[in-house]
């Protein structure tokens, strides 16, 4: 197997990982700070993609579309938090799952009603189209590199925000002891809305970037949401660092597995059954990874201890 293929696949894995991180970071923050399981996070991803596609097509600029998509996702997130989610914090997880599942259905049908059920196609902006040559000698799409770079920036920004700013301090304090920061005079309701909107904006960003690469359609968020849950379980629920490491682990495992397993089985099987067995096993690989991590570290890789 040539080195250039390994490098290219590693980059593909990194790109998938970064996309998952954008989803998982919001999910894990919301769970860590508010103790809420939000199944509707995938819908915010879809909202970001649809608004980006729609605004880009009407205005003719991907960048304006992207800005609009992120802001729309954040606004919808804030609205949903105030209207629905706020009532769920005190309830148990089953109620939260039921209510946010209902939100998925509402968002999916609403989007179908507004935009129709045919997929929209979002073009990669000219600035980021085409390919660059990697050090190994093979070309690689610029847009995928841009997604990786953007993910790295977001990770850095989140790290700085959580460790250096007052908002970050409050988020950490909220994870550690919700009642105490309320008692100290922090406006918990606003903090929750802010965190939820931040998570929604990151999901919207991920949706817009992936939408340009693939397609924008109703229900696009749910497959990613499942992977994002795998990521936060592996990384340790509530930990942004865990989400980053977990996302990259899942992204690289999935992409590498898809090429390495079929070739590995090809060593002792005929080609078509090796492809069949290899790809079947490759699609299970991340769940095996999750099972392995849970067996060794039941709290995930970077557990947040404070939760009593």
């Amino acid at each position: 197997m040539p080195l250039s293929l390994i490098i290219e696949q590693a980059l593909n894995g990194l790109q998938l990982g970064v996309t998952l991180f954008l989803m998982a970071s919001g999910l894990t923050l919301v769970f860590g700070v508010m103790g809420l399981i939000n199944l509707a996070h995938g819908s915010l991803y879809m909202v970001g993609a649809f608004v980006t596609a729609w605004v880009s097509a009407s205005v003719g600029s991907f960048w304006i579309g992207l800005g609009a998509g992120i802001m729309a996702a954040a606004a919808v997130g804030a609205l949903v938090e105030v209207a629905v989610i706020r009532r769920l914090y005190a309830r148990d997880h089953l109620d939260q799952v039921l209510a946010t599942f209902a939100l998925i259905l509402i968002f999916s049908e609403g989007t179908r009603w507004l935009f129709g059920s045919q997929p929209l196609w979002l073009d990669v902006p000219d600035l980021l189209s085409g390919a660059v040559t990697l050090p190994g000698g093979s070309p690689y799409p610029v847009f995928r590199l841009a997604i990786i770079a953007m993910g790295a920036l977001v990770a850095l920004g989140l790290y700085l925000m959580i460790s250096r700013t007052r908002l970050g301090m409050r988020i950490r304090a909220g994870e550690a002891d919700r009642e105490m920061i309320g008692a100290l005079g922090v406006d918990i309701a606003t903090l929750y809305t802010l965190v939820f909107a931040l998570g929604a904006a990151l999901a919207g960003l991920a949706g817009a970037m992936v939408g340009a690469l693939q397609s924008v359609q109703v229900g696009m968020g749910e497959p990613v949401l499942i992977l994002a849950f795998v990521v936060i379980v592996i990384g340790g629920i509530g930990s942004v660092k865990g989400a980053l490491i977990g996302a990259i682990l899942v992204g690289v495992t999935d992409t590498m597995g898809r090429i390495l397993l079929p070739s590995a089985f090809g060593l002792f099987m005929d080609a078509s059954s090796a492809t069949a067995v290899g790809s079947a096993l490759a699609s299970m690989l991340i769940y095996l990874l999750m099972a392995l991590v849970l067996a060794l570290k039941p709290q995930g890789l970077f557990p947040v201890h404070a939760r009593a």
């Binding site: 197997m1 040539p2 250039s4 293929l5 290219e8 696949q9 593909n12 790109q15 998938l16 093979s138 995928r144 690469l213 693939q214 397609s215 696009m220 992409t255 898809r258 090429i259 699609s283």
Partner: peptide, 16 residues
């Protein structure tokens, strides 16, 4: 996979 939308892994294999 049926309905797959990301073909990066397949395109990498085509190249190699």
């Amino acid at each position: 996979q049926l309905g797959q939308t990301d073909y990066a892994a397949e395109i990498a294999q085509i190249r190699a």
